[in-house]
Design a protein around this nucleic acid. Structure first.
Length: 154
DNA sequence: GCCAACGTTGGC
DNA sequence: GCCAACGTTGGC
């Protein structure tokens, strides 16, 4: 069992969209390190959904779970898609997408500000200087702390 | 809108 | 293989 955090711009795709869709293929990731993390996701892994590029409100907004391991991202072969990659061969796809399913929208979103001030989360990959990766591993401890913060009544 | 961080591209 | 230029991410 592994724990992950994926970033998304809510104006493009938010936890609410995932709730409506129930499941979604996590496509369009075009960074090799992030791709490697996507490929190592296993069914039932938990995935924290992080909203980025929100004025004053970046943070973890909900929880998802891996439903299917990664398949080749279909957008890389689609000429009409922004994700099209002419350098990717069908027999050796570059980009991969797991399917994730909706679990919950947090009662209290755990904002970036809250993550930063919690001493138990000092080691979080997300908080490392300049980390722009859109898919990151989260430790079990960090995951549990974030879930606790999300359930806290404030 | 600005800008730091950093990944990618391409000339040499 | 080096590295400058460029593009993107994402916090503020």
């Amino acid at each position: 069992m592994n724990y992950w955090l994926v970033k998304t711009e809510p104006s493009l795709y938010s936890i609410t969209n995932l709730k409506l869709d129930k499941v979604t293929l996590w496509d369009m990731v075009r960074n090799y390190q992030a791709r490697n993390f996507l490929k190592s996701m296993e069914v039932a892994d938990f995935v924290l959904l992080y909203h980025s590029n929100v004025t004053d409100a970046n943070g973890v907004y909900g929880l998802a779970q891996v439903k299917k391991v990664a398949i080749p991202d279909p957008t890389q072969f689609d000429r009409k898609s922004e994700g099209f990659d002419s350098g990717s061969a069908h027999d050796a796809p570059r980009w991969w997408s797991p399917t994730i399913g909706f679990k919950e929208i947090f009662q209290n979103p755990v904002l970036l500000h809250d993550l930063k001030k919690d001493s138990r989360l000092k080691q979080m990959q997300l908080l490392k200087r300049g980390n722009r990766l859109s898919v990151l591993p989260v430790s079990e401890t960090e995951f549990n702390v974030i879930i606790l913060l999300a359930k806290e009544t404030r």
